[in-house]
Amino acid sequence: MAEPLLQTRGITKSFGALKASDAISLDLHPGEIHALIGPNGAGKSTLIKQIAGNMTPDSGTVHFLGQDVTALDTVARARLGLGRTFQISALAMDFTVLQNAVLGALGARSGVMRFFLPVMKDRALLARAHEALERVGLQDHAATRTAELSHGQRRQLEVAVALTLKPKAFLMDEPMAGLGAGGSKRLTGFLDGLRAEAPILLVEHDMDAVFALADRISVLVYGQVIATGTADEIRANPDVRRAYLGEEDAP
């Protein structure tokens, strides 16, 4: 198999006596969707934060594109090509949908310290923003104020902004959360095609989506990865059944 694009090696993070991440080693290879599942409180968010750069692990390293990025902050990791979407939409709510997408395109291109030319007349940025909106199906809402979007549309916009960055890898934190069945199915179809462009590390609660999409699944329980494997392997794994799938999943 090819060299992993994104890799964590023995990431450990403790909060007092609680080990939120316990020697987690994960990798993300080109062309794959690697899903991360686990019950609530398993430490998924903590792990995502360490991969994205919001939190520094107590020990262990994060490698991205063959480079040790453990000491780099979110901004630097984003600039290297890590495209992240948030569990709770992090968008500029007073902006139009298009402005949010243009912001992404602006981040991808250098030159934010420009003070005179109107950004919303920059053809290159607009083209990139429109392209991303079209891909997620938001092209008709370009002029809508983001605060007026439905929850599902905000999730779509999150993905669109990540797309404008043309990232080398995606880090998606529960992109399906709060989507209806239709929206979830649509996004599943979209992510299915997206993996060819850049691999996706997908944290998701929607089991249908995870089992439909993931090339590999890792199961996180109490800060530890208890199993990694294909959908079938995970389904058959007795530890996983006991720790997770057998239990009633909290909504």
Binding site: V75, A78, L106, G107, V161, L165
Partner: peptide, 15 residues
């Protein structure tokens, strides 16, 4: 203006 509204968003696009 985006940084005022949501600093996470701005960081995530590499600014």
């Amino acid at each position: 203006s985006a940084a005022r509204q949501n600093a996470d968003r701005v960081e995530t696009v590499g600014i």
